[in-house]
Write a protein that binds this DNA or RNA. Sequence first.
DNA 1: ATTAATGCAAACGGTTTGCACTACT
DNA 2: AGTAGTGCAAACCGTTTGCATTAAT
Lengths: 147, 147
Amino acid sequence: MTPINQLAEPWRSLPERLRARGLRWTPQREAVVSVVAGSDGHLTGAELVERCRSADPRTTPSTVYRTLDALEAMGLVQHGHGADGREEYHVQPAGEHGHRYCAHCGKHWDIDPTSAAGAAIIEAFRPDGFIVDLSHVTIVGRCNGCT
Amino acid sequence: MTPINQLAEPWRSLPERLRARGLRWTPQREAVVSVVAGSDGHLTGAELVERCRSADPRTTPSTVYRTLDALEAMGLVQHGHGADGREEYHVQPAGEHGHRYCAHCGKHWDIDPTSAAGAAIIEAFRPDGFIVDLSHVTIVGRCNGCT
DNA sequence: ATTAATGCAAACGGTTTGCACTACT
DNA sequence: AGTAGTGCAAACCGTTTGCATTAAT
């Protein structure tokens, strides 16, 4: 996909920031990162492995997961868990957000902290002094069209 | 654990209700059910397997999971997913409820639909015509004492 | 030259499946 | 007798690990 140096921040400067931490920038990481950066904001580990493999069949799962760890350490992605319990990675520029799935049709929506619903969830637990991590929130139910 | 016929409804009548559906009541199912009925309202599949094994080491995972399927079909349990993504089974008498975990200390609370927080979540999506299944809701964050 | 990252293969944990056998109805 | 449920073992899927090799610094 798009080479790293054509991407906007925070991706463009990633190689340097990795090096600053004593980590390294490799062709494999570039491949993984370009897929992540070109995603819609969330992917499961398995999805990413698959997309990387179709870009380059030589990609191995371990490299992908290790790269995800590095990206998480850099604060560029954050992991949560989807409706089926898989590891789900949220890409940072999209901001911390949760997910909402229709159990019937599978449709899904983001839950943004600035939306009414997102704010309501955060507020719901504030009286207890509990700070909700919205990126781990998954709401499952039945949507409008699936009644 | 407690034999089935010493339990309250809805467990006591379970054998008959299974039979009414053409399903069967077996010693293995009694063993699993007595553990489920004696639980605090939620267990993961793996937890249940383990508890059954310690009651009777001959228990096999397949039997446990198949029994859970049967119990779910009877509406006695309902599955969701916990903070780590495992299958989590909610025992019915406790009512449909979600869970809330502190990512730091691991403490956990139920989210009851009648509580302010539970209601807030349900209400949050009502404007969209979306019916939240609270038993699938897991809120992760940081609690009061872990600031 | 140092040491982080890779690729492989093998292991993991939780769950599911195929199949011949058992036992509930 | 009929068929649902069992137990075993093996397969599954997504993820993680050990280890010798490669390559970024």
